[in-house]
Protein backbone atom coordinates (compact mmCIF):
# COMPACT_ATOMS: atom_id res chain seq x y z
CA UNK A 1 0.00 0.00 0.00
CA UNK A 2 1.49 3.34 -1.08
CA UNK A 3 1.33 6.20 1.38
CA UNK A 4 0.98 9.91 0.68
CA UNK A 5 2.09 12.93 2.66
CA UNK A 6 0.35 16.21 1.86
CA UNK A 7 2.62 19.05 2.87
CA UNK A 8 0.60 22.16 3.57
CA UNK A 9 2.42 25.42 4.19
CA UNK A 10 -0.27 27.97 3.31
CA UNK A 11 -2.62 29.73 5.71
CA UNK A 12 -6.09 28.11 5.62
CA UNK A 13 -8.28 30.89 4.32
CA UNK A 14 -5.92 32.98 2.17
CA UNK A 15 -6.52 30.83 -0.88
CA UNK A 16 -8.26 27.61 -1.90
CA UNK A 17 -5.03 25.66 -1.51
CA UNK A 18 -5.79 24.19 1.90
CA UNK A 19 -9.37 23.37 0.98
CA UNK A 20 -8.03 21.51 -2.05
CA UNK A 21 -5.33 19.70 -0.11
CA UNK A 22 -7.78 18.66 2.61
CA UNK A 23 -10.22 17.18 0.13
CA UNK A 24 -7.42 15.44 -1.73
CA UNK A 25 -6.14 14.01 1.55
CA UNK A 26 -9.60 12.80 2.57
CA UNK A 27 -10.14 10.76 -0.56
CA UNK A 28 -6.82 9.05 0.19
CA UNK A 29 -7.71 8.14 3.81
CA UNK A 30 -8.00 4.45 3.02
CA UNK A 31 -4.52 4.32 1.49
CA UNK A 32 -2.59 5.76 4.42
CA UNK A 33 -2.41 9.52 4.20
CA UNK A 34 -0.83 12.14 6.41
CA UNK A 35 -1.54 15.83 6.25
CA UNK A 36 1.49 17.74 7.43
CA UNK A 37 0.94 21.34 8.52
CA UNK A 38 4.03 23.47 8.17
CA UNK A 39 4.82 27.21 8.40
CA UNK A 40 1.55 29.17 7.94
CA UNK A 41 -0.25 25.86 7.37
CA UNK A 42 -0.30 25.29 11.14
CA UNK A 43 -3.07 27.87 11.51
CA UNK A 44 -5.39 25.08 10.35
CA UNK A 45 -4.75 23.31 13.68
CA UNK A 46 -6.40 26.08 15.72
CA UNK A 47 -9.68 25.25 17.43
CA UNK A 48 -12.68 27.56 17.19
CA UNK A 49 -12.36 28.65 13.57
CA UNK A 50 -15.20 30.74 12.20
CA UNK A 51 -15.29 31.16 8.46
CA UNK A 52 -18.82 32.55 8.24
CA UNK A 53 -17.76 36.18 7.69
CA UNK A 54 -15.62 35.00 4.79
CA UNK A 55 -18.47 32.99 3.30
CA UNK A 56 -16.28 29.94 2.76
CA UNK A 57 -16.42 26.39 4.19
CA UNK A 58 -15.14 25.94 7.71
CA UNK A 59 -11.99 23.85 7.24
CA UNK A 60 -11.87 22.80 10.90
CA UNK A 61 -15.25 21.11 10.37
CA UNK A 62 -13.65 18.92 7.74
CA UNK A 63 -10.99 17.80 10.23
CA UNK A 64 -13.69 17.02 12.78
CA UNK A 65 -15.72 15.13 10.20
CA UNK A 66 -12.78 12.85 9.44
CA UNK A 67 -11.16 12.07 12.78
CA UNK A 68 -9.28 9.18 11.15
CA UNK A 69 -7.28 11.59 8.97
CA UNK A 70 -3.77 11.67 10.36
CA UNK A 71 -2.84 15.33 10.84
CA UNK A 72 0.61 16.37 12.00
CA UNK A 73 1.44 19.94 12.92
CA UNK A 74 5.06 21.08 12.85
CA UNK A 75 5.58 22.31 16.38
CA UNK A 76 8.42 24.77 15.72
CA UNK A 77 6.11 26.53 13.22
CA UNK A 78 3.40 26.76 15.90
CA UNK A 79 5.95 28.06 18.36
CA UNK A 80 7.27 30.68 15.97
CA UNK A 81 3.74 32.04 15.56
CA UNK A 82 3.03 32.07 19.27
CA UNK A 83 0.32 29.43 18.89
CA UNK A 84 1.47 26.96 21.56
CA UNK A 85 -0.77 28.69 24.08
CA UNK A 86 -3.86 28.32 21.88
CA UNK A 87 -6.43 25.54 21.89
CA UNK A 88 -5.81 23.13 19.06
CA UNK A 89 -8.11 20.69 17.29
CA UNK A 90 -8.07 17.39 19.19
CA UNK A 91 -7.21 15.19 16.24
CA UNK A 92 -4.01 17.09 15.46
CA UNK A 93 -0.74 15.54 16.65
CA UNK A 94 2.16 17.89 17.32
CA UNK A 95 5.53 16.74 16.08
CA UNK A 96 9.02 18.17 16.26
CA UNK A 97 11.30 18.89 13.31
CA UNK A 98 12.79 15.40 13.21
CA UNK A 99 9.53 13.47 13.48
CA UNK A 100 7.94 15.70 10.86
CA UNK A 101 10.79 14.95 8.50
CA UNK A 102 10.68 11.24 9.34
CA UNK A 103 6.96 11.12 8.55
CA UNK A 104 7.65 12.74 5.18
CA UNK A 105 10.50 10.38 4.39
CA UNK A 106 8.46 7.36 5.40
CA UNK A 107 5.75 8.22 2.87
CA UNK A 108 5.97 6.97 -0.71
CA UNK A 109 4.80 10.29 -2.10
CA UNK A 110 4.97 13.86 -0.87
CA UNK A 111 2.49 16.25 -2.43
CA UNK A 112 3.02 19.99 -2.10
CA UNK A 113 0.27 22.15 -3.52
Amino acid sequence: MKTVFYLQDSAPYGSEKVYGALNAAIVCIKMGVTLGLYEDGVYLALAGQNSKPLGVPNLADILYAYPDLNVLAHEPSLNARGLMMESLIETVELVDEIDFLNAMEASDFVVLL
Partner: peptide
Amino acid sequence: VKLVGNAMANAT
Protein backbone atom coordinates in the same frame (compact mmCIF):
# COMPACT_ATOMS: atom_id res chain seq x y z
CA VAL B 1 -4.66 23.97 30.57
CA LYS B 2 -3.83 24.71 26.93
CA LEU B 3 -0.13 24.55 27.68
CA VAL B 4 -0.53 21.10 29.25
CA GLY B 5 -2.76 19.91 26.42
CA ASN B 6 -0.32 20.99 23.78
CA ALA B 7 2.62 19.59 25.74
CA MET B 8 0.90 16.18 25.76
CA ALA B 9 -0.09 16.31 22.08
CA ASN B 10 3.31 14.96 21.12
CA ALA B 11 4.32 11.31 21.08
CA THR B 12 7.89 11.87 22.31
